[in-house]
Design a protein around this nucleic acid. Structure first.
Lengths: 167, 167
DNA sequence: TCTATCTAGTTAAACTTTCAAGAAAAGGTC
DNA sequence: GACCTTTTCTTGAAAGTTTAACTAGATAGA
């Protein structure tokens, strides 16, 4: 249901190939760039940083594990490991959820918030330098639309809910 | 030189933030999607598949390790591990380089080529379905330009050569 | 030649991610 | 309540990646 029907190998045109190569190239370099920048300036990979950002924007700087995993588009297992690591670093703390004894809240600590405050300018600057400072307003708008289309197409099948929301 | 100068935290505008979120979201979903597709249909992650593609397009279906690493934008260390794994699977074989006794050539085996031939249609189909079938010709052209700009901006500093070609 | 330096590739150890399995609580349904 | 299913989160092992150190061979200069 997800992939090919045999017998009709519709290859990519030359232009499509070239766009695809550019896409892979650029996204690879970008991810490497940001991982390196954050590893250097904040001591953690990009995705971990993203988790802290999510927490910093949540109501009481905390979120249920499952919700956080969903918002960050990672598996719960991966999140468990990641939070364990962030806890060891002191940026996050776990708290039992009062209303559901199975639940855990990941809470951004003051140290975590402070770290975020310190490293955010550098990160924004890296993003801006790598992407926005190089694009015209038209290109920026266009990129937004395109990424929106692609994301929507890849969105977890169930159009509405969060049932098999990831893999 | 790479990141911020303190005192001027130029944050992202609302639109920039929205584009950036869409970018992260879409690229994450895309990478997950392709990794899953290839793990299922070819038994290897996306990047390993890319290595085989590179080899399949090289002159005698072989390449020096360093060159392959450079073309695939990964470190030599990562390539060493990857080739070890691909060798164990039988898709790739190592050969001593005749002209440089330090050198190794990674060679795509017949089995590797055959596997590629079998799984390529499904992979192309997955890419097409996730991206090209959803974009207008204008969007495709625009995406190509944008990715080109971004990649160029992140290209290893040394404008000409391959000195510190990666990290 | 002798020596210092550079390049190619590998390796070990620490870390991250994935996969499969599992414990515990919650939610039906009878 | 008893029973079955689902949801939440964790765990351990295997796979993959990163970092730094290391071996061997190539290169260049005195």
């Amino acid at each position: 249901m997800t992939t090919a029907s045999p017998g009709e190998p519709r290859w990519l045109s030359d232009e499509e190939q070239s766009v695809w190569r550019a896409y892979l190239h650029a996204t690879t370099l970008m991810e490497d760039h940001l991982d390196r920048q954050l590893q250097r300036d904040a001591g953690m990979p990009h995705i971990y940083y993203g988790l802290l950002v999510q927490l910093s924007q949540a109501p009481r700087r905390q979120k249920r594990m499952t919700e956080l995993a969903k918002d960050a588009k990672i598996t719960r297992s991966r999140l468990s490991h990641a939070v364990a690591r962030l806890e060891k670093s002191g940026w996050v703390r776990r708290e039992d959820c009062p209303s559901d004894k199975r639940g855990q809240n990941a809470v951004l600590t003051d140290e975590g918030y402070e770290m975020l405050r310190r490293s955010a300018p550098g990160h924004v600057s890296a993003v801006r330098q790598a992407m926005f400072d190089r694009l015209t307003p038209e290109q920026m708008r266009s990129l937004g639309e395109i990424m929106q289309v692609v994301a929507t197409g890849l969105q977890p099948e169930g159009t509405d809910a969060d049932l098999p929301w990831l893999r």
